[in-house]
């Protein structure tokens, strides 16, 4: 039977904060066999992937008022971070702390695929390791493979309003080194 450590990040989210680091610290402090019960103001889809890659399975349920409870249980399977060397830096393989974004784009009112065009153009102008943030009006599913091809990493998810998608893109730290 898994015992769960509870973490309620709703106050942080409601105050406009970013609980990602605290969640990872809590996860890293878990003892073998322990799981995490997370309470959030939205379904934390990106986190599901990140913790999935660390060997956690999850069960998410809506608990009313738009809030979500997610139980992460250790699956016993080893983490699969390094299993796909062809994609060196995607959201699933990178849980380090990122620097503050140096550029912000609001692409919510642009015709597709213009949001993607601007993000790709911006990544070319940033220095290796720098981060850019962008608001979009939907999950940019065609953007991610293009980012992966260039070795950039990303984190993204819907804001608590449920309609704005915020994506952070970190430019490939080794960009230009191989070219």
């Amino acid at each position: 039977m898994t015992t769960f450590v509870e973490l309620d990040v709703r106050p942080i989210l409601r105050a406009g904060g970013e609980p990602f680091e605290q969640i990872l610290n809590t996860v890293n402090a878990l003892k073998p066999g322990e799981g995490l019960r997370l309470l959030a103001t939205f379904k934390p889809t990106p986190l599901l992937h990140v913790l999935g890659s660390k060997g956690f399975t999850h069960e998410a349920k809506e608990i009313g008022g738009g809030d979500w409870e997610v139980q992460f249980s250790p699956s016993g399977a080893p983490a699969t971070n390094a299993a796909n060397p062809a994609k060196p830096a995607t959201a699933t393989a990178d849980d380090s702390v990122w620097p503050e974004p140096v550029q912000h784009l609001d692409n919510r009112d642009l015709d597709p695929p213009e949001p993607m065009v601007r993000i790709m153009a911006a990544t070319e102008s940033l220095a290796p390791g720098e981060v850019l943030s962008a608001f979009l009006c939907r999950e940019p599913i065609f953007l991610f493979p293009e980012l992966a091809k260039r070795g950039h990493s990303w984190r993204g998810g819907f804001e608590s309003d449920g309609t704005t998608y915020k994506v952070l893109v970190r430019v490939n730290p080794t960009k230009g080194a191989s070219a």
Partner: peptide
């Protein structure tokens, strides 16, 4: 077709719009 052709070079060079 646009995504297939120009996705890989977006931002690196001038590309047509869809």
């Amino acid at each position: 077709t646009w995504l297939e052709c120009y996705g890989p070079v977006l931002g690196k060079t001038a590309t047509p719009r869809v």
